[in-house]
């Protein structure tokens, strides 16, 4: 298991690589520039380390507004374009409720209840392919 560096002061979260899966743990109180930095770092990490899956854990994020929602979706879609399947997990119930009420969602991005189920899904789909 190797740990990536936290992404700087006022950071958007931390990165961790487990079995060639990049896990992004997002912080609460995200600023826009932290989210932008995160997008850059995630993209280059996926490429540099030849990773096979991306999991974005939203469990500590206490609100998602339209900007953050779009950023997460863009991140997932661009990782998929790179051939890296992406799962978003751990969206809090109140956050999900607010997104629905505002008429937003994550499009066709895969989502799971928590990190455990996300990692299980990664394994399953890997087995299915091999």
């Amino acid at each position: 298991m190797s740990y990536g560096a936290a992404i700087e002061e006022g950071s958007a979260g931390s990165l961790m690589v487990v079995e060639r899966t990049l896990i992004v743990q997002l912080n609460p109180a995200l600023t826009d520039s932290a989210v932008r930095r995160l997008r850059d770092v995630v993209g280059s990490t996926l490429e540099a380390q030849q990773l096979r899956a991306l999991v974005i854990n939203m469990a500590s994020v206490d609100m998602m507004d339209s900007y953050l929602t779009r950023c997460i979706r863009d991140l997932a879609v661009s990782a998929r374009l790179m051939g890296v399947p992406t799962i978003v997990c751990g969206v809090q119930p109140a956050v999900a409720d607010t997104l629905v009420e505002m008429g937003m969602d994550l499009g066709d991005v895969r989502t799971t209840l928590n990190l455990d189920s996300a990692l299980r899904l990664v394994k399953q789909s890997r087995r299915a392919r091999s």
């Binding site: 507004d65 339209s66 900007y67 929602t69 779009r70 607010t98 009420e101 505002m102 008429g103 937003m104």
Partner: peptide, 20 residues
């Protein structure tokens, strides 16, 4: 009316506030 998409957001921000 939700027909607009901005470069920065989803074009849904203000409309979302109204819905909430």
């Amino acid at each position: 009316t939700g027909n607009y998409r901005s470069k920065l957001g989803m074009g849904l921000g203000l409309r979302g506030v109204k819905q909430l």
